[in-house]
Amino acid sequence: MVVKVQEEDFDVSAECAGMAESKGAGALVTFVGTVRDYSDASDILSLDIEHYPGMTEKELERVSREAAQQYDILDSLIIHRYGSLQPEDNIVLVAVWSRHRAAAFDACRFLIDVLKSSAPFWKKEMTPQGSRWVTDCPGCRAGSREGHSHAPHAAPHLLHSR
């Protein structure tokens, strides 16, 4: 289980080649998230990613441990970048090794979904009209103003009603 939070880009093949616990795997599933060049309202010139150093690593390690407990996997790797990124740049890599493909697919989906709702990263889009923080809240989109969760896949402690 490896977690990396870094400013620099990553090479998927090189990163996956170095994983010691992946021996004996019959499946490797990878997910790579990249910077889109558009959003709902505008073109995107660049994307700034802010994070909470320390807490970010702890959260990614926590979700990795959770995946290892819930799925029959051999190993996992998460790399998430921060700083100023350009359209098409890599943002995040999630890789999972297992003996059979189903567990690797399921655990990879679990890791990226939970990561998106609990790891303390925040995106700010730079557009021709100026900058704006990215917000992504199904409850807000549905029009619910009170008592909804911003963390549909996370632990109950993330739920709050104010």
Partner: peptide
């Protein structure tokens, strides 16, 4: 203690 908006990583 830290305060922040909903996270938007990934």
């Amino acid at each position: 203690v830290a305060f922040f908006p909903p996270v938007t990583g990934g």
